[in-house]
């Protein structure tokens, strides 16, 4: 992480200045990814039986919704050049609170949802506050908080699931808006739209990007970077909580094991989607649409590979290769852009 400077190849917006915006779009990460998605989807649809069946489309779409939300949660903190290993733990903790509120306290669904989401944001606040106060990298702080959040949750719940939720919760998870479209996917699309607006037009959103791109410059221009970083972590917590509730809706129960031991199962989708989508780990740039496309690509590939029966055990290696190839391709593209832009 000390190489943050070296990681950033082109200052945003400066290098490809001479290129037409059309050219930039064509060489953009999102465009490349979209083409790739269309190609793979078309190939699978033509060659694999059942890939385009309503059930298959429905389950892939729903999974894309959940993975994208997890990816967005991580993206919100990657903006600052930090990361949050506790996204899974926050998601599970919020989901368990959600379940407890409804099943034990008898709180109605529409009240429990905002409470659980706010709880996620407050866990994010704990992370952000600790990171800013200690000045220690968020990796180590969230490594610790992931153990603590998850440990306390298991201790309190005794690892027991809440499966007596109001029937609306499960009905929502199984609902079909159109044949083949899950409302979970629609929620994610709506959140994506909100985030695009947020980063582009709101003051706070722009401050997040500025603080991530160059903390000192942002500080000089009057941005209180400490507060902005705390806000980023809160946004992460909030989105992680939404993802936790989405999983709860799909499962129809709040289950402590839904993100694995310490919530670690979420880490791969959390990083894969934004990084494939072109979010820079060094901060300062987000790609909301890229994250959505990244999650889409992963799920189409996974689903296709499962249908092709390449063997469940090789899928993991395949996903790893894909991540590697994606970042290398992105790197090549940036070098190409830099050379073209500089001439």
């Amino acid at each position: 992480m000390a190489h943050a400077g070296a990681d950033r190849p082109i200052p945003p917006g400066s290098a490809p200045r001479r290129m037409s915006s059309g050219m930039r779009l064509l060489l953009g990460n999102e465009f490349g990814l979209a083409v790739l998605i269309l190609l793979t989807a078309a190939t699978f649809a033509l060659t694999l039986d059942g890939f385009t069946s309503p059930f298959s489309v429905y389950t892939i779409g729903r999974q894309i919704g959940i993975d994208t939300m997890i990816g967005l949660a991580m993206m919100a903190v990657i903006v600052t050049g930090g990361l949050d290993l506790s996204v899974g733990a926050i998601g599970v903790c919020s989901a368990m609170l959600f379940g407890w509120l409804m099943q034990v306290m008898g709180v109605p669904v529409l009240v429990a949802v905002p409470l659980a989401v706010l709880f996620g944001a407050s866990l994010g606040f704990v992370n952000g506050f600790t990171v800013v106060m200690s000045g220690v990298h968020s990796f180590i702080i969230t490594l610790a908080s992931m153990s603590i959040f998850f440990g306390v949750m298991i201790f309190l719940t005794k690892a027991a699931a809440f499966n007596g939720l109001p029937p609306q919760v499960q009905a929502f998870g199984k609902m079909r808006v159109l044949p083949g479209i899950s409302p979970l996917l629609l929620i994610t699309v709506a959140v994506c739209a909100a985030l695009v607006v947020f980063y582009r037009y709101s003051t706070l959103g722009r401050q997040m990007l500025a603080a991530g791109a160059n903390a000192r410059a942002a500080e000089l221009s009057g941005i209180r970077t400490g507060r902005v970083i705390v806000a980023c972590h809160m946004l992460t917590g909030l989105l992680a909580a939404i993802a936790g509730l989405m999983v709860t809706a799909r499962t129809g129960a709040a289950v402590p094991s839904m993100a694995g031991q310490l919530g670690q199962d979420w880490l791969l989708p959390a990083f894969l989607a934004p990084v494939l989508g072109g979010t820079l780990l060094s901060g300062g740039r987000v790609s909301v649409i890229g994250t959505l496309l990244g999650a889409t690509f992963i799920n189409i590939m996974t689903s296709g590979l499962l249908l092709m029966r390449v063997g469940e055990f090789w899928i993991l290696a395949f996903l790893g290769m894909m991540l590697l190839i994606a970042v290398l391709a992105d790197r090549t593209r940036q070098i190409f852009l830099t050379s073209r832009g500089m001439i």
């Binding site: 499966n163 998870g173 129809g252 129960a253 289950v255």
Partner: peptide
């Protein structure tokens, strides 16, 4: 994988 979580 989970007595409750696999139900759905």
């Amino acid at each position: 994988g989970d007595a409750v979580g696999t139900t759905s």
